[in-house]
C-alpha cells in the first residue's frame, strides 16, 4: 500500500509511533548487552576496530533514521510559525 493512499489519521499515528520507537531502539543499541557484544577480541571491520565501527555505524543509522522520520512527518503536524514571524499585536 502506498503512503499516499493511507488516511491522514493513519499516517499521523504511524509517525508518532515511529517517533517513539526511534529513540527507544537507539538507546537499546548503545547500552549493554548489545554495545559490548563482540565475538572475537580485536575484531576489525574495514580496518577499523569493531567497537568503533559499531558505534559509528549505529550513530549513522540514528542520523539516517532521524532524517527519514522528519522527512515523512505529515504536514498537518507541522507547527504554526513562531509568533514573532506573524507579529501583529
Amino acid at each position: 500500500m502506498s503512503i499516499s493512499k493511507q488516511s491522514a489519521e493513519t499516517r499521523v499515528r504511524k509517525f508518532k509511533f515511529a517517533a517513539m520507537l526511534l529513540p527507544i531502539f537507539a538507546i537499546l543499541l548503545i547500552v549493554p548487552p548489545l554495545v559490548s557484544m563482540r565475538t572475537t577480541q580485536n575484531a576489525v571491520i574495514l580496518g577499523i576496530p569493531a567497537n568503533i565501527a559499531y558505534l559509528f555505524g549505529v550513530w549513522l543509522a540514528m542520523i539516517i533514521g532521524a532524517y527519514i522520520l522528519q522527512k515523512t512527518m505529515p504536514d498537518i503536524l507541522a507547527n504554526p510559525p513562531h509568533p514573532e514571524d506573524k507579529k501583529s499585536d
Partner: peptide, 27 residues
C-alpha cells in the same frame, strides 16, 4: 578509550527523540 563517544551519543538520543522532549520544551 571510547568514553568520549558517550558525550555525543547522549545529545544524539535527545535530538532524534525531539518529538517528545525538545518540541514540547520549545513550544
Amino acid at each position: 578509550g571510547l568514553e568520549f563517544f558517550a558525550i555525543y551519543l547522549g545529545p544524539t538520543l535527545v535530538f532524534i527523540g525531539w518529538w517528545f522532549g525538545l518540541r514540547k520544551l520549545i513550544r
